[in-house]
């Protein structure tokens, strides 16, 4: 590993601005779409799970086992099924993002104080009102933490998506590894690391803001 000083990666990025923008866009698109789709799948599924007693055990079991499956294994498993490209990558990332959002939504709703739910039902809230007035607002901090986990985790996973032709910064890392070229390697790695860390910090800030008033006061 001596071809070029590692810190030359800045120069490499500067020399390839078009490609950099393209990889960033691909990366963000992969993460954004997968998390968005995952939210749309996971939250209704979680609500349903808390409504149907028999559904809860198998669903949380599946989700917990799913969490244990190594992410690369999920990517690996989609290859024989869906081939290579953006869509299989999106599929794998979506599956991986559904799990934490689903689990956190179930935990969030289950975690709402029994007394509060009891009071709400005793006052005559319909099931739908109970969900919208009480359960979802009170579960929202935990749910958002799940979305945060999914997003940051998928920024990393999207790097691996390059292996099945999903694009993103993983392309440069892959190229850098293949060519044993540290500047290219780091031109992919450093932006991804920065993207993940800054997203984590931004979402932490957002979480503080969106917590319903009343939960944070003392």
């Amino acid at each position: 590993m001596r071809r070029g000083e590692p810190l030359d990666f800045i120069a490499y990025i500067r020399d390839h601005p078009e490609q950099f923008r393209e990889l960033l866009l691909e990366h963000v698109r992969l993460v954004g779409f997968s998390v968005l789709i995952a939210i749309l799948i996971a939250i209704p599924l979680a609500v349903l799970t808390t409504r149907l007693a028999w559904f809860e055990r198998p669903m949380t079991w599946i989700a917990n086992v799913g969490q244990t499956v190594p992410s690369l294994a999920i990517l690996g498993l989609t290859l024989p099924l869906l081939g290579i490209g953006f869509r299989p990558a999106l599929f794998a990332l979506t599956i991986k993002a559904v799990l934490p959002i689903f689990l956190n939504t179930v935990i969030g709703i289950r975690g709402v104080d029994r007394a509060i739910v009891d009071a709400a039902r005793g006052m005559g809230t319909s099931d739908r009102q109970l969900l919208w007035f009480v359960e979802l607002p009170l579960a929202s901090p935990v749910m958002f933490a799940g979305i945060q986990t999914a997003t940051v985790q998928n920024i990393g996973l999207a790097t691996l998506a390059a292996y099945i032709g999903g694009g993103g910064f993983g392309d440069w890392i892959l190229q850098g590894l293949a060519m044993v070229n540290p500047p290219i390697l780091l031109a992919g790695a450093v932006p991804v690391a920065v993207l993940a860390m800054s997203t984590e910090m931004i979402l932490r800030g957002v979480r503080r803001v969106i917590v319903p008033a009343g939960l944070t006061v003392t």
């Binding site: 104080d113 007394a115 509060i116 009891d118 009071a119 709400a120 005793g122 007035f133 009480v134 607002p137 009170l138 319903p212 008033a213 009343g214 939960l215």
Partner: peptide, 8 residues
Amino acid sequence: QQGGLFPH
């Protein structure tokens, strides 16, 4: 008991 008030 404990009111069961909605904290939000």
